[in-house]
Design a protein around this nucleic acid. Structure first.
Lengths: 119, 119
DNA sequence: GTTAGTAGTATACTTTAGGTAAGTAGTTAC
DNA sequence: GTAACTACTTACCTAAAGTATACTACTAAC
């Protein structure tokens, strides 16, 4: 069996695998990236996020927000208003995900279109 | 509450959420992207993949490969050799994930480095 | 004959992610 | 007073994912 492509050295491959593994560890799962997108598009409040992200329950949203906050992607603020308002905002660090989000959204759009054409 | 950024219209946001949702539906989960990377780096055989991808079991690898084949990311070939050799190769369609994989690997590397510095 | 390699499958069990539904606590409007 | 909004929490359940070990069946080397 000959190789189909010139592969990177094994070490490089493992490095890439580890990098992607680290990324998935913090932003993997069904909801995290969607929450980040919804936040980045101006949805800052709990119920606003829940309404925007179709299918997510309050429990899951609550848990995921805590997780994202812990990992430095979300800043939670309780405002002194009445009724109480809580906002969740993307941090500076979240903006480093820009390329990831854009390439994923772009690919998803292309894939969706491909599926649509194939029926 | 004023908006922090000028958000896209709601419709655009939902479109982006759906696109990412579609993407995650086929390439989400703990292993699929790692398998695609390992394959793309010249690991074509079952045990070779299992050795390269740390932590994956034969059962999971077997299931994920079937899934990836079904979705058009993997071409499975049984070779007439002795002992029997089976190869799993990335398809043309898999190459459309290039940007996704690169941006994710790049971000993961950066994130890993950040974690390392923070201890 | 035994060890090691090829590529898996089978079985059984555990863990975790996520889903469902209801409840809590406070405020405001009618 | 009661309905509806805010932002959640709690308890329970299920299905998917993961772990562990053993097993098949074939070949080659020692």
């Amino acid at each position: 069996m000959e190789k189909l492509l010139t592969p990177l050295p094994k070490e490089k491959c493992v490095q890439k695998l580890n990098a992607v593994g680290d990324a998935l560890y913090v932003i993997g799962g069904k909801w995290k990236l969607r929450i980040i997108i919804a936040m980045s598009e101006g949805n800052y409040r709990f119920n606003e996020l829940q309404r925007t992200i179709e299918g997510i329950s309050a429990k899951v949203l609550s848990n995921e927000l805590k997780d994202l906050e812990l990992n430095g992607f979300v800043k939670r603020t309780v405002h002194d208003e009445t009724p109480v308002v809580v906002t969740y905002e993307p941090t500076e660090y979240t903006h480093t995900l820009k390329n990831v989000l854009n390439s994923l959204a772009e690919w998803g759009t292309m894939h969706r279109e491909k599926l649509r054409q194939e029926g």
